[in-house]
Each structure stands twice: as C-alpha cells, then as structure tokens.
Design a protein around this nucleic acid. Structure first.
Lengths: 354, 354
DNA sequence: GTGAAAGCGCTAACAG
DNA sequence: CTGTTAGCGCTTTCAC
C-alpha cells in the first residue's frame, strides 16, 4: 500500500531554517512569525518587517508540507490522463495546468497508459499525497470503486473527455461525441459516399461508443444501411490506423471513405492509403476527430471535428477550483459542441496544391 | 514567499484513519504498525497479517506527507519546462515521466513560458514542497542564483535541452546543437544553396547560439561568406516563422533556403512561403530542427535533425535518480549526437506525391 | 520482534 | 496585536 522503498528517497543533510529560528532571530514567538509568513493583516508593520528581515537573512524556506499537515488542507491537485503522447491530452494538459497555476495550485501528474491497475495505483498515490482534488480522464472500462474512494474522503473529482460507467455523481466536461460523429458522417454522406468505414479505437471507451452512435444516426437519417464489417476496432494510434485501413481495403466491397476514431488514427489511415498506392483526398476521403494542431498541416490537410481539448482543460480546472472552495452543488455536466472543420482530405473533387 | 491564500485550500471534513487507529484495532503499537506499512522484514508473520487486515478493514490511507515530514525525505521530483505546447517538450516530458514513474517518484510539473520570474516562483514552490530533485530546462538568460539555492540545500538539479550561463556545476543532458546546425547547413549547401536564412528563436538561448555557430561553421568550411541580414530572430512559434520568412523574402537579394530554429518555426516558414505564392520543397528549401512527430506529416515532409527529446528525458531522469541516491560525483554532461533526416522540403529537384 | 516516548515544522485555539 | 500550549500523522531512537 505504501512501499516506502528506501532507495527512492533522498535525505537532506543540511537542515533547513525553521520558523522557530526565524522567530528567535526576530525576537518574536513562532506563532507571530507564522502569521507574518502567511500575510496576516493583524500584525504591526514593525513586527512584520523585523520578521521578514530575519527570514531573508537566514534564508528561510516555507515548509508547505508541514503546513499542509498541520492545517489539514492541500493546494495540490492531481491530474490523471491516459497518455501525454497524444496531442489531444497534451493540449488538455495545457489548459488544466495554466488555469490551476493561475490559482496557485501545484499539479501532480500521472499517466495511466490506459491500464486500470495503473490508474488505481495513481489514485492511491494521489490520496497518499493528500491532493485537494483530482482531474482525470478515466481508462476505458474503469470501475467506479476506486474513484468513489476519493469522493468518500470528500476529495472532489472532475472527469474529462471520457465518461465512466455510472459516473453520474462526478462532474464531467467533454464534447458531444455523438454530435461529432454525426457531423463527420453527414459530411461524408453529403459528399456522395455510401460506404464509409469507422476505423480505430475500441468499444470499451465511451467516446468510441458515442462517436459510433453519431455515425449510425447519420446513416439512419439518410435512410442508409450500416455495414458492420466496415467498423473496425484498432488501437487509437497511427499504426492502428494503418492496419485498419489495410483491412478495410481488402473488403470485397471496399469503402470509399473513412472516419478515423481520432486524428492520429486518421493520419495512419492516410499513410496506409499511400502505402496502398492511393492518394487520400483524391481517391479516398478521410476525416478525423479532435482537430489537433497537426491536422491542418498534414498532407493533405485533414477534415476533422474540433474537440477543444484546451478549453475542456480550462473548464475542468475552474470547476475543480469551485469544488475545492466548498461548492457542493449537484454534479455538473458541461458538454461542448464540436465543430466540423472541412479540409482537403475529404473533398475528392478539389485540386491539391501539390 | 508563501501566501497561503485561504481560498485556494480545501479543508477535509471527514478525518482519515490514522496509523494509531490501525494499531489499536490490531492490538499493536503505532511503531509496529508503521514497520508493517513500510514492509519491514523484522516483523512476525502473524503481526503483519493482523495489521494488514486492520488496515483493509478500516480503509487506512498512508499519509506520505506526514511520513516525509517526519523522515525528512522526499520521493517527489519537480519538472520545470518552458512550454508544454511545444511537442519537443511534451516528448521530453514523456521520457522523464515514464522513467521517474518506474522508480516510484511522483512528478510535480511546472511551466515557465520563458519567464524568469515564473521560473523563480516555480523553484520556490518546489523547494517549499520539499522536492527531492529537479529536472529543468532553464529560461534564456536565467541567472544561476536561484538554481544555486537548490544546490545549497543539496537538492540535485539536472538541466535539460538548454544550458545555463556558468551552469557547469549542474548535470546537463542535451544534444549537440552546434553539430546539428552544421549538419543542416552543410546539407543545404550541398544542395547548391548559397543564400541560406537562419530564422526564428532568440540569441538569448544557448540552443540558438549553438545552432547558429554550427550554421556559421558550415559556411566557413565551404569557404562561403555569411550574410548577417539573413539571420532573423523571432519567437520560436509558427507565427514567428511566418513573419521571419516574409521579412527574409523582402530582402533585395533574397535567400533560396531557410534553416528554421526548430520544426515549429520551419512549419511557419513553409506556411509563409505558401502565403507568398511559393511552394516549399519546389521553389524554396526548408529545414527544421528537433524532428518532432509531425515533421514527417507536414506538406511537404520536413527535412530536419533528430533531437531525441524523449531520450533526453529518460537520461535526465536516470541521472537524477542516481543523484538522489547519493551519487555525488562530478557534474555529468551527456551530449547526444543529432541525426539529419532528409525529407522532401529540402530537395528541390524531387517530385512530390502531389 | 515489539513498545514507549520524543519530535519533524508548522498552525489553531485561546489568552492576554 | 502577540504569546502559550497543544498536536497534525508519522518515524525514530532506544528500551525490553
């Protein structure tokens, strides 16, 4: 449960200056010095300056660990994401970090790599470090048990980007994946496509299920039938996209367009097409999901749907901040509406620059 | 110096189970329970199990904050980078985080956005949180003073990617920017270019100065003269690249090729060229630096130099780990050799796929 | 092998 | 406004 593991620790040899030493040096009590450190207004100017001088002179360093222990508070928050490598999450991280930083919180980072046991371990660690709150993107198929433990200790939890089964009790910020899936698929149908593959990602994730739902809705609304064999699960990576499109192309009645679970998959799909001698955006339409920065820079530029990761992060941080300040209202749900961004990868009639 | 700021804190209402309660429940002393928690081998099997059962039953959570306070150790490390938005740093973060995680450390994250005062504040915060070590990429023009404070408290510091003036006392991991700059420039010269702009970045950063040095070396070795007016400083962003190339194109004797300070700048340069009606890779050669993931996906694919950010992160974490375990040897310098990656953006004679 | 007592550096509650 | 006293939850001697 704890495993101190002596080898991972560092012992400080030179003792720090303590508040007591500062107090002695300044000729006041520890309590007074403490008040000065914390900027209390009930301190006379002279005393304050005396103490501040002593602090400077002795090279005093405030010990937040001790202070937090005594006061039973915390100004750290945990951020748990699945993968920093994915730009969607690194942009989300930017939003969270920037907002929390502004409010004076310190961020402890954890990545699960989609492993439930890793996620549990991270949540434990965060509990052990007495974080004041947690922002997390749960791993697919994650059980509420562990996360409920946090709730039990009145540590607010804000979920981002992915929902959790029966996680209605938690605040959630995400985008409308159903609407996003529908937007993308409607666009492709409007471009004349009838056989549209849905590639990459796994059905374990709520985002996948919702995007697929939107995909299906668009088909139904257009009065078209869905060919389940064009829905191919694969890791949400570039390689996953490459493999998925290759499989799709071997279909006896192959698709003419593909909806990648996210932009990374879509990149893979385009690379796979090129390897197969096809030109994405001319011979085959591709769309993605997320609108990460590089999607506009790909060759050809990728049609996709904006998922506003940074904004999600900012909102999540704001809500967490409110919760940590005592807001005990009902669980909030903030669902951003995605926006279709049409680029060349899905416009087969267009001429490319190259 | 501390500014507790009541509003950023959260008070826990429900008290945690303490080790004392576990000890009582199990009918042993606090000290014994503590030994069990830490997996001491000097405990009888029965006692251990009794205690472990009580822990489970009561829902005990180890309090690392209290433990660290008492034992004067720390298993947290601080990671300070300039910007998470830049893929170079997010890949570096991946390397650091993965390696530290494996060793059981917890990472506190900070970003400076290249602001020296922000960097100082972050270092203070990390000190206040009693981090056991710090990995940082110093802001340009950063003074050693603040960082020396850490050294003074025997908190090991490992510098990554950027050096610090008179920072020889610190471990440093980075790439050979001089060699990288030379590689890139030699390549362009070999392609027949004589007027090569060096765009983006600021001379305040050691990486900039070194890359420029390499650029100059290549010119000298080829017996060519350098035109200082083709060296244009600008923010190391896409927009910076756009602006810099526009300025360069207005030169009475404009360049035929550009070396972007990093890949992001190079992307901007290519976008700027397109806006000016030129086609990068056909009318104008562009190379970057870093070889971030998206450089292979750009249109056209970008010639660049691999800077191995993730590897740098991994090495930095390893060295820090050694330091935190008492390795007090001389400051280490690990300089990775960059590798030229030739792609279409610099091969004017090649035919593109589009 | 286990227990008793002391104390890490700080803040809280109350006096004055 | 400032000082006194107690104690956060844990680890560390040092007994036995």
């Amino acid at each position: 449960m704890s495993q101190a593991g002596d080898d991972i620790m560092t012992r400080k040899k030179r003792a720090r200056v303590t508040l007591e030493q500062v107090a002695n040096h300044a000729g006041v009590s520890r309590a007074t010095a403490s008040l000065v450190v914390r900027g209390s207004p009930h301190i006379s100017k002279e005393t304050r300056e005396k103490v501040l001088n002593s602090m400077k002179e002795l090279g005093y360093i405030y010990d937040r660990v001790a202070a937090n222990l005594r006061s039973q508070r915390s100004s750290t928050v945990g951020l748990i994401i699945t993968e920093i490598g994915n730009p969607f999450f690194s942009e989300l991280l930017v939003g969270v970090h920037e907002a929390l930083d502004k409010e004076g919180y310190t961020v402890i980072l954890g990545t699960t790599f989609d492993s439930p046991s890793k996620q549990d371990a991270l949540l434990s660690t965060m509990l052990e470090y007495r974080v004041g709150g947690v922002i997390m993107s749960p791993v697919p198929g994650c059980s509420v048990d562990m996360v409920e433990r946090l709730k039990q200790w009145e540590i607010p939890v804000v979920l981002v980007a992915r929902e959790m089964p029966s996680g209605e009790q938690f605040d959630y910020i995400g985008i409308d994946n159903v609407a996003g899936g529908r937007l993308v698929t409607e666009h492709l149908i409007q471009q004349g496509h009838r056989r549209i593959a849905f590639l990459g990602g796994f059905s374990g994730s709520s985002a996948w299920r919702d995007r697929k739902k939107g995909y299906c809705q668009a088909f139904h609304q257009a009065g078209l039938e869905i060919d389940e064999s064009l829905i191919i699960e694969a890791p949400a990576t570039r390689q996953g996209g490459i493999n998925a499109i290759k499989q799709a192309l071997q279909h006896p009645n192959p698709p003419t367009a593909a909806f990648g679970y996210n932009d990374i998959v879509a990149f893979g799909v385009m690379l796979g097409l090129k390897e197969a001698g096809m030109i994405p955006g001319r011979d085959f339409a591709v769309v993605g999901f997320d609108n990460i920065q590089e999607s506009s820079m790909f060759n050809p530029p990728l049609t996709t749907v904006s998922a506003f990761p940074q904004l999600i992060g900012t909102y999540a941080a704001d809500i967490l901040h409110q919760r940590m300040n005592g807001d005990a209202g009902e669980a909030k749900r903030l669902i951003l509406q995605p926006e279709l961004v049409v680029r060349e990868s899905s416009l087969l009639h267009s001429d490319h620059q190259f």
